[in-house]
Write a protein that binds this DNA or RNA. Sequence first.
DNA 1: ATAGGCGCCTGCTGGC
DNA 2: TGCCAGCAGGCGCCTA
Length: 278
Amino acid sequence: MPELPEVETVVRELRGPLVGRRLGPAQLSRKPLRRKWSAAWTGLLAGRTVIAVERRGKWILIDVGGPWLLIHLGMSGQLRVVDAGAPREPHTHVVLPLDAGATELRFRDPRRFGSVLFCPDRALRDAFLEDGRLGPEPFALEPAAWRQCLAGTARSIKAVLLDQKVVAGVGNIYADEALHQARVHPARPARDLTPRQADAVRRALARVLARAIECRGSTIRDYVGGSGCKGSYQERHRVYHRTGQPCRRCGAPIERIVLAGRSTHFCPACQAGPPLAG
DNA sequence: ATAGGCGCCTGCTGGC
DNA sequence: TGCCAGCAGGCGCCTA
C-alpha cells in the first residue's frame, strides 16, 4: 500500500513524538507478521532511546542507539504514536510504550504483509537493505546510469519502475502517474525508450514523488500518516484509479490493463503505444 | 532473463 | 438480505 511518499510522511510525522523517547517492553498480538518477532528482541529494545527516524525506499528505519528497528508497512500497515489510553484498534500487532508509558508507538496491519524487524547494528542493517535489495533513491538517480539501466532490459518500463532493486520506493500508484506525466506507455520495453524518454521518466518520477510528499501521500482507503491524518495526493491523480474517466490532459478515457501482475492505468492517446502493434 | 502465477492476509465493493 | 467474485498501495517464491 504505502509507497515512498506515504512512508516519508510517516517518518516525518513520527520524528517529533519519537526522537528522545525511551522504549518500554514490546507488546505483541498473537498473530505473526510476515517475519516473526523474536522473543529476544523485546529485551534488547527495552530501555533504549530513539535517536533518529529515517527512510530508505519503503522501509522505515528507527535508530535506537546502536541497534535499529526496520519497519515495512506492506499493503495495509500503519505506524503511529498515540496516547496509551486510546482504544487499541483491531489488528494492532506491535506496541512499544514510550517513556513512562503515557504514549506508545503502535504498528497495526490488517493484512499482515508488513514487517517489524530488529537489527543489532548498522552494518547488519545495511547488509539487509543494500545487498542487492534496494536500488538508489528516485531523487538520486544518475541520468547516465539510469539510461543505461533501461537500455539493458527488455522488461516493460512499468515492471522496471516497480523493481526495488532498480529504484527504491516506487509502487503502483506513482509508477502509473510518472509514466503518464512522461507520456510513455507502461508496456513499452524499457530498452526501447529513447534517451529523451528515459530522462523524462526519471524527472517525472522525482516530480510526482516530491509533489506527493508535499500532499502527505495518497489515501485510497486506509493509509494514514504518523499523526493519523490522511493524504491528499489522490485528488491529483491523473490516471491511477481513474479507469474510464477523461484524461486530464487530452480527454481520452483512461484505460486499465494488467502489467507485471498489477493494475495499470494509462491514457491511450497521450502515452504512445508499445511496438509489437507497430 | 523475464513473464506469469500463486501465496501470504483481511476487508471492502458491486453484482446478482 | 446474503452470498460470492473481484479488487487492493507489496513482495518473494516458483515455474516455464
